[in-house]
Amino acid sequence: MDVTSVLFYVFSAILLISGLRVITAKNPVHAALFLVLAFINASCLWMMLGAEFLALTLILVYVGAVMVLFLFVVMMLDVDLEAIRKGFWKNFPLALVLGVVVLIEMLLVVLRNPLITTAVNADPATNISNSNKLGWVLYTQYSYPVELASMVLLLGLVVAVALTLRKSEKAAKYQNINKQVATDSKTRFTMVKMDSEVEDKGDAQ
């Protein structure tokens, strides 16, 4: 076995184990960390396939941003694991049936049309990088789907803001940054004229 296949099996094994630990870990923070490990190993596998852009973007977007926010929320929530585990055996048969159905569907898809993908691969002869080529394809052949997807994302962004923004005078206090920045010494200091204090003897003691 050469080094590449050894690395492949190492990364795949860690990926599978950490994927399993995501759903079995008791501590939600540990589960989130195992998901991060799974993402990183998936990215290593992609890197070995020569898909450097996808690999690095997976780390940048999912590990670097999405999972950080996930972790952020999980750490702040007080998750009561016992309460979540209570109904485990009651719901187990239903979950098992659903799991088997999903597994059969996936197997059917994989077995019927084997995953032969025409990967956008870097061509060593022309020295055009993977990212460069991906960019060409995305903005020529697939430019309408890309634009459409970006509009959907923008819509999601706007809707999320619109749903959560409650701009009523009573509910929230807003800072006027311009007003804060425009302060000078006159608004902060007041010079008070007063007589100098007279040292009194005896009483204080």
Partner: peptide, 20 residues
């Protein structure tokens, strides 16, 4: 490497894990 800038931003975004 050809994707040097991407690599730097990707690893840089991992650094936040150490702090959190």
């Amino acid at each position: 490497v050809n994707a040097g800038v991407l690599y730097v931003t990707a690893i840089g975004s991992l650094g936040v894990y150490g702090i959190i």
